[in-house]
């Protein structure tokens, strides 16, 4: 028996919106720790890791560890039946091939019961070691999203350079080139507007903007984004989900021949 209840149902809608453009199908791992997922995009270039800890739910019951294979697109379709202020309950029983979503309006005057078919998904699980990064940039998530969107209209790749001067995002395309530098700014009164750069070593890495822009679909989950970089390693772009966990994206860099 697996059952979870999330009062802030819109959170699940936003989480699914944040991953649906990157992965088609994924196994959701259910355990007493929480509800989690690790899935790669079809080209094995990017990965999303989601964690929603059990303590963050109003009610969380998971009698044994198991995985539920779901089509993210179908899940997004089912979640369209939920209003933003609905309370969401997800239920699954052992040995069944369906999952039930229940959406309750806050005043309890409307209850929707939705059943979705589960899938058998054969997926590779990657072992991601805890790593020390050469540079960690924390900045407003909306700022990061706007930079990626602006650079996407000029080029296909973004080079992220962290130095003493700050963090520079640059691109080059047929029509020209552009670079945007953000300096450390921790003096702001609002912590969500701060840009903080922790640098052990200068780094310079190039990534496909197509993927980075997809990651910014998680912007509504967190006011801040953390970008962790090391030379010749995948970047980690993390959006924390208050009280519950995180959505982390990993992207392999572009490398020279």
């Amino acid at each position: 028996m697996f059952e979870l209840r999330l009062v802030q149902g819109s959170l699940l809608k936003r989480v699914i919106d944040a991953i649906k453009d990157l992965v088609n199908d994924a196994n959701f791992d259910c355990s007493s720790t929480g509800f989690s997922l690790q899935a790669m995009d079809s080209s094995h270039v990017a990965l999303v890791a989601l964690l929603l800890r059990s303590e963050g739910f109003e009610h969380f019951r998971c009698d044994r560890t198991f995985s539920m294979g779901m089509s993210i697109a179908n899940m997004a379709k089912m979640l369209k039946c939920a209003s933003n202020d609905d309370i969401i309950t997800i239920k699954a029983d052992d040995g069944t091939d369906t999952v039930t979503f229940m959406f309750e309006s806050p005043s309890q005057d409307k209850i929707s019961d939705i059943e979705m078919k589960l899938m058998d998904i054969d997926s590779d699980h990657l072992g991601i070691p805890d790593a020390e990064y050469d540079a960690i940039v924390r900045m407003p998530s909306s700022e990061f999203s706007s930079i990626c969107s602006s650079l996407s209209s000029i080029g296909d790749t973004v080079t992220i350079t962290v130095s003493k001067q700050g963090v520079t995002f640059s691109t080059k395309g047929d029509i020209g080139s552009g670079n945007i530098t953000c300096r450390q700014n921790s003096s702001t009164e609002k912590p969500e507007e701060a840009t903080i750069i922790e640098m052990k070593e200068p780094v310079c890495l190039t990534f496909a903007l197509k993927y980075i822009t997809t990651f910014t679909k998680a912007t509504s989950l967190s006011s801040q984004v953390t970008i962790s970089l090391s030379s010749d390693m995948p970047v980690v772009v993390e959006y924390k989900i208050a009280e519950m966990g995180h959505v982390r994206y990993y992207l392999a860099p572009k490398i020279g021949e």
């Binding site: 080209s43 270039v45 995948p234 860099p253 020279g256």
Partner: peptide, 14 residues
């Protein structure tokens, strides 16, 4: 030129 590396190049599959 530059080419796109894969995650499996850095992380092991289990």
């Amino acid at each position: 030129g530059i080419f796109q590396s894969r995650l499996t190049h850095y992380f092991r599959t289990h």
